[in-house]
């Protein structure tokens, strides 16, 4: 059994709860163990980096130091967490003075980081470690009738493009096809959802997310697969406001890719947190 150091991120107990539930269910089903990094701290996301760069790197480095003690690869499902952890590694590699400062900072708390941690997104693990053949072998209820718009958003694929193309990614397309879904050609797949701007500049956020949904609907998608708690929320929770403002139906079920994969594996919708989604229209299974 391969064990991973799990970095759930702060949204796990809130918006991202169904992501956590479905990720755990899918990994368990595939024989992959997730061990939570003990006492992990917030990654700092984009906000912390806007105030202090050095401290933002130190925040991420504390998590990397804790993960290094576990001698396992890190799994970070949230796009912002994934990016911040990888970015801290890149920055410590490129800027030795910064790395030295961060190591000193960690030392103040009795921690060390030698740089032996690999941070991976679950999409990368499913496609490149588990492999599509192994995924296909586990599919018992192929996603017939699911026309999926694969939405990557930005921070999983950019800027580093560690496991996929930063502008025209394909891994989620292939994974969803392996699960038996029809994958819609969706050119906005790596276009930004605005992230936390929905909370600060709602007008702008609603417009950006409406465009994403409009395009998916125009291409006859009947469900969108997402990789990030904030993308999922922005796209799902404001559909009423979109309809009101643009006088156009903007209904589209927005789910985590792990929820769709779990369905294809024959897992119970409740075990995948599907009862927590706001939009539960077809093709999603009816919830009791």
């Amino acid at each position: 059994m391969t064990a991973y150091a799990y970095y759930p991120g702060c949204s796990r107990s809130g918006l991202g709860k169904p992501y956590d539930e479905s990720l755990r269910a899918v990994f368990r089903h595939l024989g992959l163990a997730l061990e939570e990094i003990p006492d992990w701290n917030c990654c700092g996301a984009t906000s912390y980096m806007s105030i202090s760069e050095d401290k933002a790197v130190a925040l991420a480095a504390r998590n990397l130091a804790l993960a290094e003690q576990m001698k396992a690869e890190v799994v970070a499902p949230c796009a912002a967490c994934y990016l911040v952890l990888t970015k801290a590694q890149h920055m410590m590699g490129e800027y030795p003075a910064l790395a030295e400062k961060v190591r000193k900072g960690l030392g103040a708390a009795g921690l060390t980081y030698e740089g032996h941690v690999t941070v991976r997104h679950p999409l990368d693990i499913l496609v490149n470690h588990v492999g599509l053949d192994a995924v296909r072998a586990k599919v018992t209820r192929p996603l017939a009738g699911y026309r999926v718009a694969p939405y990557y958003g930005c921070q999983v694929v950019r800027p580093y493009g560690a496991f996929d193309d930063p502008l025209r990614p394909q891994t989620l397309d292939r994974l969803m096809a392996a699960a038996g879904a029809e994958v819609v050609d969706y050119p906005l797949k790596a276009h930004c959802c605005g992230g936390s701007l929905m909370g600060t500049m709602e007008d702008i956020g609603v417009r950006m997310n409406f465009l994403l949904i409009k395009e998916a609907r125009a291409r006859h998608a009947n469900v969108m697969a997402t990789l990030c708690p904030l993308c999922q929320y922005n796209l799902e929770a404001y559909q009423g406001k979109m309809r009101h403002r643009f006088h156009e139906d903007a209904t589209l079920p927005i789910v985590y890719f792990t929820q769709l994969l779990g369905l294809a594996f024959g897992l119970e919708p409740k075990a995948l947190g599907l009862q927590r989604n706001f939009v539960t229209a077809e093709p999603l299974p009816a919830m009791a």
Binding site: G14, D39, N41, A58, G105, A109, L111, R276
Partner: peptide, 22 residues
């Protein structure tokens, strides 16, 4: 999907010592 409590790490002081050192 809404947690009302303030989540926190076991020992925020340990993290603070890192940030202070920075």
């Amino acid at each position: 999907r809404m947690a009302l409590g303030q989540d926190h790490i076991k020992d925020p002081k340990q993290l603070q010592s890192i940030l202070d050192a920075m």
